[in-house]
Design a protein around this nucleic acid. Structure first.
Lengths: 140, 140
DNA sequence: CTACATGCAAAAGATTTGCTTTGCG
DNA sequence: CGCAAAGCAAATCTTTTGCATGTAG
């Protein structure tokens, strides 16, 4: 289901701006920040303001349509929620590339840790920061 | 070894302000942010400016004396590095309390994940956000 | 029609920085 | 003494907000 369809199901008021932003997010396979979203939105309609982008992503986040991430670069990045059957992220510190991964084992341990400490696990954040290994394929 | 001693070993220039901030950090058993550090510093010397606190924690961080954390509350919090035989954090979303924990198993898996993806693990972030379980001790 | 969304610019919150003065080594 | 550090305020950066205007339903 597209984001626009989700919005309609939740009977949100659909404006041109929201449709543009929704479409961009549907097509994004990366983790764009607001500036990047605004840039892409302006290619379609140069009158969309950053304020609207901020308001829209917040709206979508609150509606459970997007997830917000704050990696160590200091700005918020967004990701389509339906893509994510829950995964975590590895950030390439050399070029900023973000790789998704999933690990059931860690999920289980996390829950167990929280439980042991007397907590119900509500949310978590797991980010790995790595540098590409020197590829030694075809060593001479 | 106290922070002040570490600074001297690294032949940093020691000012009164730095000594005050160093001492506060030595005595802190929590994860104070800059505002909190500044508040505590002012109790000792009301002339210390926030700018100095910011500069000092950055200095200490770069010298490997402090670790900076950015939990989901949006500001940086600092922790004495020597205390930490590497641990992660569980944040109580009800009252902001921060609990440290250690889990060797997760560390190993993380390294393995990075390796599998072709990366050398440089850094990571693992935070659990939880709500205290209803304690049913002594149920009547 | 009317409540809600947008644009714009100003405000806010955290952190950094330029510049002058102060003080450690 | 000289160069690094402090203080203060102004500047930055990201995100939010107030207000007048536009528009979806």
């Amino acid at each position: 289901m597209t984001i626009e369809e989700m919005c309609e199901h939740k009977s949100m008021r659909m404006t041109d701006q929201r449709r543009v932003i929704a479409k961009i997010l549907d097509n994004a396979d990366d983790h764009p920040d607001v500036e990047e979203l605004h840039k892409r939105a302006c290619l379609i309609d140069k009158n969309i303001s950053v304020a609207t982008v901020y308001r829209t992503v917040r709206l979508f986040e609150e509606a459970g349509i997007l997830v917000r991430h704050e990696f160590k670069d200091g700005r918020s990045r967004y990701e389509n929620v339906d893509t994510s059957d829950h995964h975590d992220h590895l950030i390439d510190i050399e070029n900023g590339e973000i790789i998704e991964f999933m690990n059931e084992e860690i999920e289980v341990i996390q829950k167990k840790i929280a439980d042991t400490l007397g907590y119900e696990l509500i949310d978590h954040r797991l980010e790995l920061y790595g540098r590409p290994k020197a590829t030694k394929k075809n060593p001479k």
